[in-house]
Computed example of a mutant assay.
Amino acid sequence: MLKLSNNVAIQDWELQFTQIRAQGAGGQNVNKVASAVHLRFDVLHSTLPPFYKERLMALSDQRISKEGVIIIKAQTFRTLEKNRDDALRRLKALILEAVKIEKARRPTKPSKSARRKRVDEKTRKGKTKALRGKVQL
């Protein structure tokens, strides 16, 4: 089970892993290519909340097809388990990126006390920097 938040999780049966071996694998990268993984996740037929599904389908990402299938390819590591973990981590990051809502913040200027504090701090740092290496009697 891949936990996304306190009340949202993806069940193991919704994830399909396929071990891929690329054509013409040879030389030094044989082990790396042999442990490549494709993770397939069907958004429309998943147990995700409707809000998550809508936001995922609206996201413009080449890993998401028009039919609502996400395919993540992982072949960075030499072991199958690490590639699976990497694919799960990237799927989680993709879903959380889709549902993240930015807070509307209005630009504010620093208060008078904050400006004064910053000037005092810079002055203090400047004085101690100027005294470095100087012998004090």
Rank of each mutant, 00 (worst) to 15 (best):
M1T: 14
M1C: 10
M1A: 13
L2I: 15
K3G: 06
L4E: 10
S5N: 12
N7R: 13
N7C: 10
A9P: 00
A9F: 14
I10P: 02
Q11K: 11
Q11T: 14
E14V: 06
Q16I: 15
Q16G: 08
T18C: 13
A22G: 06
A22K: 13
A22C: 11
Q23N: 10
A25E: 05
G26P: 00
Q28M: 06
N29W: 04
N31C: 01
N31H: 07
K32A: 12
V33E: 05
A34R: 11
S35V: 02
S35M: 03
L39Y: 08
R40W: 02
H45R: 09
L48Q: 01
P49N: 03
Y52W: 15
M57V: 05
L59C: 11
R63V: 15
I64M: 09
K66D: 14
G68K: 05
I70R: 06
I72Q: 12
I72M: 13
I72A: 11
I72N: 14
K73W: 10
K73E: 15
A74C: 09
A74E: 11
Q75N: 15
N83A: 09
R84C: 08
D85L: 07
L88I: 13
L94A: 10
A98S: 12
K100G: 00
K100I: 00
I101L: 06
A104H: 02
R105M: 02
R105C: 00
R106A: 09
P107D: 04
T108Q: 09
S113G: 02
A114T: 12
A114H: 06
K125T: 04
G133N: 04
K134I: 09
K134L: 08
Q136D: 01
L137G: 05
L137D: 04
